[in-house]
Design a protein around this nucleic acid. Structure first.
Lengths: 189, 189
DNA sequence: TAAGTGACTGAAAAACTAAATTAGTCAAAG
DNA sequence: CTTTGACTAATTTAGTTTTTCAGTCACTTA
């Protein structure tokens, strides 16, 4: 029964964060869901935020794995950039925990949540950066400031996938790929 | 003394919105500043929001004029895109009213303010769209979806000018021009 | 006697209430 | 006719009380 207590706690917390968000999840609730005493949580995690941190780290790993899964080495670099980025943002808009956190940030502006979402964004940018550096080393694309490039790539994607929908009909994956191809491949002019 | 009452009201309101923001500006205050009775304001404007609307419209006109001023027809299209966009965002970060409104939106989330800022953004996109359509007609650049392109151009600029500064040293106008040139002129790959 | 627990505590947030503010009106003044 | 500012209803703020909750630690249990 009382086997991996730590795992039980993380699972319970993940479930609760996904369902109610960070603020609305109480440690008593997590303890009850995990079938442990509240004190037990504190033998594994210094505080609520550290528990959250661990869950976010797993989430990032899961996202990167999803992106990797969709990349095919024989396809052109541009196509893989699109595939990886699209998958990452799809993940963001489909994964229950991400949805809840994005919503909580917008509606309540919870500080801890803002920080963690920023953290997720930074990890994605770091991931893109490594990919771009790899492509440059292999001579697949010309040298460029990888920090700015990866940053800008993500921002363009977020603009096309999320911001665009505020005022327009959503763009299909094909349309987004088309637009990105223009900017990545030949430039607007 | 009591000459253009309407103008006095708009000037007083502009000053107050710039200084205290939308919410913290009271109609009594505007009336006093404009040296008119409060009722007089309501002979010119249906309500507070309509007064605000008029001021925002002027602001947009001023912004567009600034952008136009900086454009030089003999320069290449790319260069002018950069000049105009950079000037627009510089205006946004230097103009007292814009600063105050952006701050008010972030800190208090005032609905009327969010709507008006969205309106400003839409006007900028419309302006860009007209410019791009003009360039396409003249054959200066190849045809493309002008709605998406202008939207994405603005988003890229906001990312480089504003978002970037959250985690990095600000980019100089030259650096931004350089990055944009890559994406606009030849593409990343 | 080490691991696990949940009642307890202070600090923070929510709920409630009373008081103050303010957008918009309109009867009277100019 | 235009202008006004006292007035009102509705909202917001400020002050107070109540509740909630993260984190601790004395105690239990195995």
């Amino acid at each position: 029964m009382a086997l991996d207590r730590r795992k039980m706690i993380v699972e319970a917390a993940t479930k609760s964060f996904s369902l109610f968000g960070y603020k609305a999840t109480t440690m008593d609730q997590v303890a009850k869901l995990a079938n442990v005493g509240k004190g037990t949580i504190y033998t594994f995690f210094k505080n609520k935020e550290e528990l959250f941190e661990e869950i976010i780290s797993s989430l990032v790993k899961e996202m990167i794995a999803e992106a990797e899964f969709v990349i095919q080495p024989d396809l052109p670099f541009t196509e893989n950039v699109h595939r990886a980025l699209y998958r990452l943002l799809e993940f963001r808009s489909q994964h229950q925990l991400m949805i809840k956190l994005v919503q909580e940030e917008k509606e309540m502006g919870t500080l801890a949540v803002s920080e963690k979402l920023q953290h997720v964004e930074n990890e994605i940018i770091e991931y893109l950066k490594r990919k771009i550096e790899g492509a440059i080393t292999k001579g697949a694309i010309p040298a460029a400031d990888t920090e700015i490039t990866s940053f800008l790539l993500l921002k363009m994607y977020i603009a096309l996938v999320s911001d665009w929908e505020r005022n327009h009909e959503p763009l299909s994956s094909e349309q987004i790929a088309e637009v990105m191809k223009v900017f990545l491949l030949k430039g607007l002019v």
